[in-house]
């Protein structure tokens, strides 16, 4: 290989690495610099006392508290909904499924993983409208529907992570388990799932990150700019990413803009925390994966 081509390759790789990283630092640095000064208790709780707000004895009207609560509820609810289905589907794919059915389901999961979140949101919305007609107006776009929509969105990720974790179990374990005379379900419940739990847990955390940041899917399924802390499964709610989205286009003045920067920083920290945690689990239990 000629020297100049080597240099070109090396230089190109170096430049693209630097380019990407500086792009990220450019945008995130802006958020951190502008967001840091606005980080305060007042940003979250407004003029309500934090203790009273946290005990839900007094409501917060001009802080991010309702949006943060909304996002936390959404994250927990959707992961709780998606986990059982995701894990069981993963188990089925790695232990029970075979032949055409398995290939078909595998294709479905790949497709589902690629479907844009706004399309999933549109699905959730039409589902909500259907429910609204059936239930004569008691159920409409709401926290519950949004959580259901998000759980569809993160389902493929959970399935794939479960499959990967199950596939990483060494052959010796399989042999030992069958030699002990365990039935397939016994083996899965008592041995394989516990062994795969770090990987599954990691998938769950990645799913939480996705739920916390996704805006498009909830935009169509009941999130609003003003609703207060979540109060009912089938009530409207606020969420952090939607608050950021709204402020970006219709901030009323410098204070609201500062709130937007603060909210972005909080969401960024929340997602960094979740992803850091998942990376930690990965390096702890599978030191060889990146």
């Amino acid at each position: 290989m000629k020297r100049w081509r080597r240099l070109l390759l090396h230089g190109g790789a170096l430049l693209s690495t630097l380019g990407l990283l500086s792009g990220v630092f450019f945008f995130l640095g802006h958020i951190v610099l502008k967001g840091m000064p606005s980080l305060s208790l007042a940003l979250i709780f407004g003029d309500t006392s934090p203790l009273k707000a946290l005990l839900f004895t007094q409501r917060v009207f001009n802080g991010l508290f309702p949006a943060i609560c909304g996002t936390l509820c959404l994250v927990l609810l959707s992961v709780v909904l998606a986990l059982p289905a995701g894990i069981l589907t993963g188990v089925w794919l790695s232990h029970f499924g075979s032949g055409r059915a398995k290939a078909l389901l595998s294709l479905c999961i790949d497709t589902l993983a690629g479907v844009p979140s706004i399309v999933v949101g549109l699905f959730g919305f039409s589902f909500a409208i259907l429910l609204h007609k059936i239930s004569h107006g008691t159920v409409g776009p709401s926290l519950g529907i949004a959580a259901l929509t998000l759980s569809v969105l993160v389902l493929p990720g959970i399935v794939r992570n479960t499959q990967l974790a199950l596939a990483a179990i060494p052959r010796e374990t399989h042999l030992a388990v069958s030699a002990m005379g365990a039935t397939p379900v016994q083996a899965i419940v008592r041995v394989y799932l516990p062994m795969a739990s770090p990987g599954i847990f990691r998938g769950a955390i990645l799913a939480m990150g996705r739920c916390a940041e996704d805006t498009a899917a909830i935009m169509l399924t009941g999130v609003v700019a003003t609703a207060g802390a979540p109060y009912a499964l089938f009530g409207r709610f606020e969420a952090l990413p939607f608050a950021i989205f709204t402020i970006a286009s219709e901030y009323s003045g410098p204070e609201e803009l500062a709130q937007g920067y603060g909210a972005s920083l909080i969401l960024l920290l929340l997602c960094a925390l979740l992803f850091g945690l998942s990376a930690l689990i990965a390096s702890r239990f599978h030191p060889d994966t990146p």
Binding site: V24, L28, H30, E213, T215, I244, A248, L267, C271, A272
Partner: peptide, 18 residues
């Protein structure tokens, strides 16, 4: 790996003003 976790809306917010 960490870059995959950066919320889209945060990029959007930053870019609108920058």
């Amino acid at each position: 790996g960490l870059m995959t976790g950066i919320p889209t809306v945060v990029y959007g917010f930053s870019a609108v003003f920058l």
